[in-house]
Computed example of a mutant assay.
Amino acid sequence: MSALVRKIVVPLQRVIAAVSFRRARRRSTVAPISWVIGPEETATMVRSMAQSLPGSYTAVLKPHPFYAGGYDYEPSPVPGGWAGSAIRDAWIFGKLAARARGFIYVGPGGFLRAQSDLRVFEFSFLKERGVKLVCYFTGSDIRSIPIMRAHERDTGLPNIATYLPEIKPIFGTEAYDRVRRGIAEAADRYADVIFTAAVDQCGYLTRDTEPFRYFYPQERIAADLTKFNLPGPRVVLHAPSSPIIKGTQLVRAAVAALRAEGLAFEYVELSGVPHTEVTEALERSHIVLNQFYAHMPGMFGVEAMAAGAVMMSSADEHVETDLPVGSNDAWVVTRHYEVTEKLRELLQMRPEQLLAQAEAGQRWVRQHATAEVSGKVLRSLLDAL
């Protein structure tokens, strides 16, 4: 994209958004929307949150490789390439802004992707027109690498920021961190409510925030846990979305060491596969090795516990203060240097012991991470705006 094209398209988007907004507001037949949720999908957050908000509308502009389809609005190709898409996005944004009580932005992206102001125009456009604004941060969209590295020095606990720049050097640059600061400043200035994980996603936000919540469908919590009483080896699953920062190297070392000790178990590793394949593997898994550089269980951790698997994770309520009290009972808290030890203990447990731990995980999901429970909290906060 040339500088000339951007120079033309950016102001054009702003004009089109305003025209679209005025036109939609004049049309009394247009049905209202409670909340527009988008524009990027992250681990089913958009889809799951919408189930908790009656009258909401999902608009995802960038297809997700593992969670494609099923949204109220997904763009189709238009003539004109990038410029044509930018014009279409502006028209849709203005139209939705005219119909909605508010927007919930999941992640760092904006609806007006031609803009390079870290959503400042977009946010101000909504606020000037009386539209409520919620920012829902999901991880590295708000996380500052320097701040998280300082956290590691203070606590001795490696975290995602420890290895993220090793995967992509851009994450360790000043330019990348300036963008995190700008995203935080825009949210601080305009958002009515901000959701994040205060420690695991620490960055430059200065305002009080609401704890990150998961929206897992309660009807998908496994009812049958007879797998713990079936004959055969224990099934151990590791399904990292990003192997290095999830600790796959630690997992593989633990698996090799325990097999050398003579412990019999089936190890399944999945990465870069459709979500349905991971779900099928979860159904028969007894133990799930989640992630070992994070302070939150993550959406996959919630799915694992809901499926009735014993979950190993570095998530710790004593580190991540936004986690509910008692969370550490729901999973096996495992530091990066404890993977082999903790996995050995689980593999040597009796079936009834593993079952009790799996049931504790399911209770945590029911109490803190379902669409029904989190939806009630979210609706209360939004209704108060």
Score class of each variant (00 low, 15 high):
residue 3 A to H: 15
residue 11 P to Q: 07
residue 17 A to W: 06
residue 18 A to S: 13
residue 24 A to C: 11
residue 29 T to S: 15
residue 42 T to Y: 15
residue 46 V to A: 03
residue 47 R to N: 14
residue 48 S to M: 04
residue 53 L to Y: 02
residue 58 T to A: 01
residue 59 A to M: 11
residue 68 A to N: 09
residue 76 S to W: 02
residue 77 P to N: 12
residue 78 V to K: 10
residue 80 G to M: 09
residue 83 A to Q: 02
residue 84 G to W: 11
residue 86 A to P: 03
residue 87 I to V: 15
residue 87 I to F: 10
residue 89 D to C: 10
residue 90 A to S: 00
residue 92 I to P: 01
residue 94 G to I: 08
residue 95 K to H: 10
residue 101 R to K: 15
residue 103 F to G: 08
residue 111 F to K: 09
residue 112 L to M: 12
residue 114 A to P: 12
residue 114 A to W: 08
residue 116 S to W: 14
residue 121 F to K: 13
residue 128 E to A: 12
residue 131 V to S: 04
residue 133 L to E: 03
residue 135 C to P: 07
residue 136 Y to V: 06
residue 143 R to Q: 04
residue 145 I to Y: 00
residue 146 P to D: 13
residue 147 I to R: 07
residue 150 A to M: 05
residue 151 H to C: 02
residue 153 R to G: 08
residue 154 D to L: 13
residue 158 P to Y: 06
residue 158 P to E: 05
residue 160 I to F: 12
residue 160 I to H: 05
residue 162 T to K: 02
residue 162 T to Q: 05
residue 164 L to S: 10
residue 165 P to E: 02
residue 169 P to N: 15
residue 169 P to G: 14
residue 172 G to Q: 06
residue 173 T to P: 05
residue 180 R to E: 00
residue 185 E to A: 06
residue 186 A to K: 03
residue 193 V to Q: 05
residue 195 F to M: 09
residue 199 V to P: 02
residue 200 D to C: 14
residue 206 T to R: 13
residue 207 R to F: 14
residue 209 T to M: 04
residue 212 F to C: 08
residue 216 Y to H: 07
residue 217 P to V: 05
residue 219 E to C: 07
residue 219 E to P: 00
residue 224 D to M: 02
residue 232 G to A: 13
residue 232 G to Y: 03
residue 232 G to T: 13
residue 233 P to A: 09
residue 235 V to D: 10
residue 239 A to N: 10
residue 240 P to G: 13
residue 241 S to F: 03
residue 243 P to Y: 12
residue 247 G to A: 12
residue 250 L to N: 02
residue 251 V to I: 03
residue 258 L to K: 09
residue 265 F to D: 03
residue 266 E to D: 15
residue 272 G to E: 11
residue 273 V to K: 08
residue 278 V to I: 12
residue 279 T to H: 07
residue 281 A to M: 03
residue 286 H to D: 07
residue 288 V to Y: 06
residue 295 H to I: 08
residue 296 M to P: 05
residue 297 P to S: 11
residue 298 G to K: 07
residue 300 F to C: 08
residue 302 V to N: 00
residue 304 A to C: 08
residue 306 A to P: 04
residue 307 A to K: 06
residue 308 G to Q: 01
residue 314 S to F: 06
residue 315 A to L: 12
residue 316 D to Y: 05
residue 320 E to M: 11
residue 322 D to G: 00
residue 323 L to T: 01
residue 323 L to V: 09
residue 324 P to A: 06
residue 325 V to G: 00
residue 325 V to Q: 04
residue 326 G to Y: 05
residue 335 R to L: 00
residue 339 V to M: 09
residue 340 T to Q: 12
residue 342 K to I: 03
residue 343 L to C: 09
residue 344 R to F: 01
residue 346 L to R: 03
residue 354 L to P: 01
residue 356 A to R: 15
residue 359 E to A: 14
residue 359 E to P: 04
residue 362 Q to Y: 12
residue 365 V to S: 01
residue 366 R to E: 04
residue 371 A to C: 13
residue 372 E to K: 08
residue 373 V to G: 00
residue 374 S to T: 13
residue 378 L to H: 01
residue 381 L to V: 15
